[in-house]
Structure formats: C-alpha cells, structure tokens
Design a protein around this nucleic acid. Structure first.
Lengths: 104, 104
DNA sequence: CAGCATCCTATTGGATACTG
DNA sequence: CAGTATCCAATAGGATGCTG
C-alpha cells in the first residue's frame, strides 16, 4: 500500500474521522449525555456489538470520545465526548438542520 | 430485503445523502463554482471515472446537485449545486473548521 | 469529453458463539 | 455487562477497455 503523498484538505480529515456507518449517530447521542455501551447500542437499532465496539474504539483513538471503566461487578463502562468531540457539535447540528428541512 | 420500520432521525437522512467516499469533497468544490466532469475529477485525486460518475448521479438523484448538458462537440457537461445542495454549506464549513482546528 | 460496461479486490458490517 | 473471536455476505470502489 502506497502512502498518500499530497496534503489532505481539512474537509477530508473531518470526513475520514466520521467515516463508519454508526459514528455520527453515536456522537449525536453522546452530545449531552455520558452513556454506557448498552445504552448506546439501544439507541442505534441494528448495530452489532462488534461494529459498535469497533467504531467506538476508532473514535476514542482519534480523541473524539473518551472511555471510562468502573471496576465493578457487573462491569460498567461509559463513553463521553472529549473537547475535540464537542468541537464537532456544529457539524452534528448542521446535519440535523439539513435533515429536518429536507426530510422526505 | 426488509423495509426499515422506524422513522429515521434527521441526522441519519443527511448522513445517508453524503455517504460515499467522494461526495462531500465534490460538494466542497462545487460550492462556489460550476464545474465540468473533468474539472471535478482533477480536483479529486484518486477517484475513478466510474465512481465519480456514480456518486454524482446519486447526488443528482437526491436533488443536491444539478447537471446540464451542452449539445456540443466535444460534449460539455456541467455540475452545480441546487438550493437543496446550497443548504449543505453549513455542514461543509463546519467540517472544514473542525478539520482545520485538529489537523495533525 | 464524458461517460458506460466489465471484472476484480478490499473493506465494511452483520450473525453467532463465547468470556472475564 | 461489555466486550472478543470467527466466519460470512454485501457493498464500495479501483483498473481497464470501449463509445457517441
């Protein structure tokens, strides 16, 4: 695989960080709430555990969300937006506005 | 294939309309200019003709861009944003802002 | 020039079963 | 509860060649 030689445009950087079927929607629900894994999964009807955990891991790696583990039994893990993630709120709300305006 | 039973959230509607590797970037370049097929392709290094024409067709079908054909030789085809597409400008600029802020 | 058709590969995501 | 591991199907996208 060849490394990409040209400088990526900022739009591409944001698009790449959000690529994945459930990422934007997950962020939408994490905007105002800290949520556990299961709570998030219930809000995304159709997502499998594998894919949800995978996409959350990518968002975490990109610094967009954080993850906190409580050493309890049964285990509790919560996800929340970082500052870098909160900076995406204008993206989320403009998507929402457009979707609301042009809903079929 | 089963039809989806629940009402899609507006965010999903917008995300679906933009899903496709090159759509957002193509819209970015169509924001202020009307562009020919080749001009667009040159601005998206790496896209194949097949995929570009396919994604433009989807954007057209969704009413986000328009397409005008000039009966000339050689043929000229231009693409431009519709009003529905122009309503996406806040999405594009918020993506750009985030990408600029958190560029690696 | 602006594409379509064909073929092929890589990636994504879903189903299922299992675990600390 | 919050995942992993494995397997599989569907889709997206790239390469190439051809055409009005």
């Amino acid at each position: 695989m060849m490394a990409i030689q040209y400088e990526k445009c900022p739009v591409e950087i944001a698009v790449d960080a959000l690529s994945g079927k459930w990422k934007v929607l997950a962020l939408w629900y994490l905007q105002h709430e800290t949520l556990r894994f299961n709570e998030l999964q219930r809000r995304l009807p159709g997502v499998s555990q594998k894919v949800l955990s995978q996409q959350l891991k990518e968002l975490e790696k990109d610094g967009i969300i954080g993850r906190q583990v409580f050493a309890e039994m049964p285990p509790r893990v919560v996800y929340f937006m970082t500052e870098k993630g909160k900076a995406m709120k204008p993206i989320l709300s403009s998507l929402f506005t457009w979707g609301t305006t042009f809903k079929p």
